[in-house]
Design a protein around this nucleic acid. Structure first.
Length: 594
RNA sequence: UGCCUCGUGGUGUAACGGUAGCACGAGAGAUUCUGGAUCUCUUUGUCAAGGUUCGAAUCCUUGCGAGGCAGCCA
């Protein structure tokens, strides 16, 4: 078993898992059932990954399911184009880890009417996303509009909800000062009649609402007769024009949880003050089955980026990035295109834990998860990003040697490959300095360096153009020093990578850096003022020949530089690489000091 | 302003009345045909003040600080 796999199977502990454990031991529920309820109005991001890993992780650890549910109660903001990307991202994130614990339902299936303890009840059971996912779809809150409406009628009949004719502004004002609506004491029959007519479309948008009758003097605003239904003459992406009244989040969410048999409803901290309302609705309905329990945790914040659909949408819309899947974006599709793997994201998520403290996580933690994985898995390759030509003057013209190179020193099974060597090479321009600082181990005038897997060379001369720029380095090789050869053990301080000029494969290489220049871009409310102008640099690289056949699913370490992944923009013979993450660079730190 | 929640090294977390530990980062060294990786070592912390207790990061009180909510958004 690999280290990462071990880490993943070691069950994390946090306050939520403790609560669930206690509930299980108390026999509160048949099994643990969570849910992941994104609103289909944007792409999933790394913050959603935390929620998914929590919900699905719990399901995994306790042998239950985590329903994927579109939380689509606001037709004005949601679009079906997002649904597909959401499900694809969820599956990608969970591949090989949590698919069997994803709860889906047959396409088009709606809740069944059952009788429990002599009472009518609605439920919709999930199916696991297994071998055969065809015909399975996510849950939709909008599939429960009919049931939710029945519950609304029930509240009205119980005298716990009323139709209110106040405007939005009046409602706000009254709630703020704790004043009761003049429509609060309408008769049950009048309320029933008005609700029916609301549904029938007799009233214009915003003219009336259905409100819960709770307590206008409550210190908790959400208990001051919150709105349950509003009138919206808008087509819904999933239900079409079937409805012109739509339930609010608070009303729909707890009931959706209940209908699906959710036991633990995990959400972020901003819903903490809604919990009394969540409980009030479910308890007021006197439902026959056991009720779901809402538990809140802190959302994920990472430095040097923004994680909110609203802000990410802005970046997409104003062209700051090239789309939701721009490799600089903290979206799952962006991270994936950048080359970051689902396993790395998952191990990052388990590493940061779950608490109620709204923390700011360093990006370095994600980087560590990526480096740890890629060091073990990535194929090593030679590529020169900013080439400078080297002529080995004592090496015969026209001669080409094939040298053996190790694919992965961390994994002998990865084998070796052949690397052509010849008289004319490219090396990284940063690997030569005419006037080097102290402790510079690379090539310098009169100095020696090891060309990895090849010879030790000595720099005799730096050829310059009229502008004084170095155009070529003329070197001599110690022809006895070939790697593996009899006198190859001679110690040279520096070892550098190189590419044979004649056989080099050209590639576009996209060098990504952090999107923002400050740790908290939105601290002053103007995150776009802190965009990093150097977040993308594109270079024309010289690569070793084998990279012409690079595979999208493979990760490559360009030795001494960084980890790279093939971009979908690649064409046959024209590879495009994205820099996923740099290697640690101790020399850069050292150089900075002086 | 009201209400809710939360404060443990630089960062993320653990310790559930009994030795404040782990990871990341940072620093030093060893090693290395990747200035990568690996190995060793070091550094820094319980928001504050009272109280309860043989003993408090943990329980209580007050204060301070941070975040959230106060949409017919979710």
């Amino acid at each position: 078993m690999t280290e990462a796999a071990e880490k993943e199977t070691a069950p994390p502990t946090d306050f939520i898992r403790e609560i669930v454990m206690q509930d299980v031991q108390a026999g509160k529920h048949g099994s643990v059932h969570t849910r992941f309820p994104p609103e289909p109005n944007g792409y999933l991001h790394i913050g959603h990954a935390k929620a998914i890993c929590l919900g699905v992780g719990l399901a995994r650890e306790f042998g239950g399911l985590c329903n994927v549910r579109m939380d689509d109660t606001n037709p004005a903001k949601e679009e079906s184009e997002y649904v597909d990307s959401i499900l694809a991202d969820v599956r990608w994130l969970l591949t090989g880890w949590g698919e069997p614990n994803i709860g889906l339902k047959p396409v088009g299936k709606t809740p069944e009417i059952v009788t429990v303890d002599g009472r009518r009840d609605f439920q919709l059971r999930p199916l696991p996303y297994g071998e055969d996912a065809a015909g399975l779809a996510p849950f939709y809150a909008s599939d429960y509009f009919e049931q939710i409406y029945v519950y609304a009628e029930q509240l009205v009949r119980a005298g716990k909800a009323y139709v209110c004719d106040m405007t939005a502004e009046e409602t706000d004002q009254y709630r703020r000062i704790g004043k009761e609506s003049p429509f609060r004491s309408r008769s049950t029959s009048e309320n029933e009649d008005l609700l029916t007519r609301m549904r029938a479309g007799e009233f214009p948008e915003g003219a009336r609402t259905l409100r819960a009758k709770i307590d206008m003097s409550s210190p908790n605003m959400w208990l001051r007769d919150p709105v349950l239904y509003r009138i919206r003459h808008v087509e819904h992406h999933h239900t079409g024009d079937a409805w012109c009244i739509y339930p609010m989040y608070d009303f729909a969410h707890c009931l959706s949880d209940y209908i699906e048999g959710i036991t633990h409803s995990l959400c972020t901290l901003e819903f903490e003050v809604h919990r009394p309302l969540y409980d009030w609705i479910l308890q007021s309905l006197e439902l026959p089955r056991s009720l779901p329990r809402q538990i809140e945790f802190a959302r994920l914040n990472i430095d040097y980026t923004v994680i909110s659909k609203r802000k990410l949408l802005q970046l997409v819309n104003d062209g700051s990035v090239q789309g939701w899947d721009d490799p600089r974006m903290p979206t799952l599709s962006g991270l994936r295109r950048r080359g970051i793997t689902a396993t790395a994201i998952r191990s990052f998520i388990t590493e940061i834990g779950v608490t109620k403290y709204p923390s700011l996580t360093e990006f370095a933690l994600l980087e560590h998860a990526v480096r740890q994985e890629f060091n073990r898995s990535a194929q090593r390759r030679f590529a020169v990003l900013r080439p400078i030509k080297v002529v080995v003057t004592n090496y015969p013209e026209g001669r080409v040697e094939e040298l053996s190179a190790i694919n992965n020193p961390e994994n002998p099974e990865a084998g070796t490959r052949q690397l052509p060597f010849s008289r004319e090479l490219f090396i990284e321009s940063a690997d030569f300095m005419e006037v080097p600082p102290p402790k510079y181990f690379r090539l310098k005038p009169g100095g020696e360096v090891r060309l990895k897997y090849a010879y030790i060379i000595k720099c005799d001369k730096a050829v310059k153009n009229e502008a004084g720029e170095i155009t070529e380095l003329r070197c001599t090789a110690d022809l006895d020093s070939k790697s593996g050869g009899p006198t190859s053990n001679r110690k040279v301080k520096g070892t550098i990578h190189w590419v044979s000029a004649a056989q080099a494969v050209g590639a576009e290489v996209r060098l990504y850096d952090r999107l923002f220049t400050v740790p908290e871009p939105d601290a002053d409310g103007d995150f776009k003022a802190h965009l990093n102008p150097a977040s993308l640099e594109i270079v024309k690289a010289k690569c070793e020949p084998s990279l012409a056949n690079a595979k999208a699913e493979e990760r490559y370490q360009f030795e001494r530089l960084a980890y790279f992944a093939l971009d979908p923009d690649s064409a046959p013979g024209k590879p495009v690489f994205n820099r996923t993450i740099t290697l640690k660079d101790t020399w850069a730190k050292e150089a900075k000091k002086s």
